[in-house]
């Protein structure tokens, strides 16, 4: 067990699961977890964060973790507000699940200390996390050293991949989910039948729609939109229904409704 102090900031399932897991492994965690994507037009959360940032002792943290599903401008605003306050030798782990670590680093005063990460919830079943280094960091030495101890504490392996929006698994899974959502909207089959078919017909660990509810539709949408922006290819265009569900705050399991309804943890499709 450890008593390292870290700060986790985010607005989706990834940040919430990470904060919980770090606490479970003995970290002292200060977390700022918004229930859904921060909205550019709603000043309140930003005012709150600004007042918190003003009083926090940034030098007392051993690492910072940021995982946002909000749109690019919001992510930039939060990261800029946070990063310049963090001592330059302190690692800043950022989710590369919607924007590349390089893009996020481009907003920073000390881009070389950023480390990108990604995993697809549920974290409980994840044995290896994807890690990446922004192009601004000339070597991966700092990142590997910083990630080593955190991952050892979490009991997970690191798989180092090249920086790219959505990395490997978030992109792979989100593309499958997007196709399932499109088929659902087109009336090809109902949600249950689509999920059963993918679990039994090709041995997927979860039905894509139930998995989307578990990951958070905000995260799935953010990954698709991020990959779409970076690749500029139609194949990654998020299904409009996914965007509408996020706007309606139907994030999935954590909000009680997504493609299925959840009450007290039970599926109520």
């Amino acid at each position: 067990m450890t008593s390292k102090k870290v700060l986790v900031l985010g607005d989706g399932t990834v940040a919430a699961e990470l904060a919980l897991e770090l606490k479970a492994k003995g970290y002292s965690v200060d977390d700022y977890l918004h229930p859904g994507p921060l909205e550019s037009w709603n000043e309140k959360p930003f005012e709150y964060l600004a007042s918190e940032f003003y009083r926090l002792e940034f030098a007392s943290y051993e690492a910072f973790f940021v995982a946002l599903t909000a749109e690019r401008d919001v992510q930039r605003r939060v990261v800029r507000e946070l990063e310049f306050r963090i001592p330059k030798q302190t690692p800043l782990f950022v989710s590369a699940m919607s924007l590349s670590a390089t893009e996020i680093a481009s907003w920073c005063q000390h881009p070389e200390r950023l480390i990108g990460f990604g995993f697809v919830p549920p974290l409980s079943g994840v044995q290896c996390l994807e890690m990446t280094v922004p192009l601004q960091a000339d070597s991966s030495f700092f990142a590997e050293k910083a990630a080593e101890s955190v991952l050892a504490d979490l009991g997970r392996e690191a798989e180092w991949v090249q920086d790219s929006a959505g990395l490997v698994l978030p992109r792979l899974v989100s593309v499958i989910i997007n196709e399932a959502v499109t088929a659902l909207v087109e009336g090809v089959a109902n949600a249950d039948d689509i999920d059963i078919a993918m679990k039994l017909g090709t041995n997927y660990p979860h039905g894509p729609l139930a998995w989307a509810d578990r990951i958070g539709l905000d995260q799935v949408y953010a990954t698709l939109q991020g990959v779409y922006d970076e690749q500029q290819e139609d194949r990654y265009r998020p299904a409009p229904q996914l965007r509408r569900l996020v706007m309606a705050k139907r994030f999935g399991v954590r909000s009680g409704q997504g493609f299925y309804r959840y009450e007290g943890g039970e599926v109520n499709a």
Binding site: L172, I176, N190, A197, T202
Partner: peptide, 21 residues
């Protein structure tokens, strides 16, 4: 799993991205 007649039905359509990506 019941579905209507569209290319790839359910599995062969939804699984394409796994290989393609």
């Amino acid at each position: 799993a019941k579905c209507i007649d569209t290319p790839g039905f359910i599995v062969n359509r939804v699984a394409r991205g796994f290989y393609g990506e």
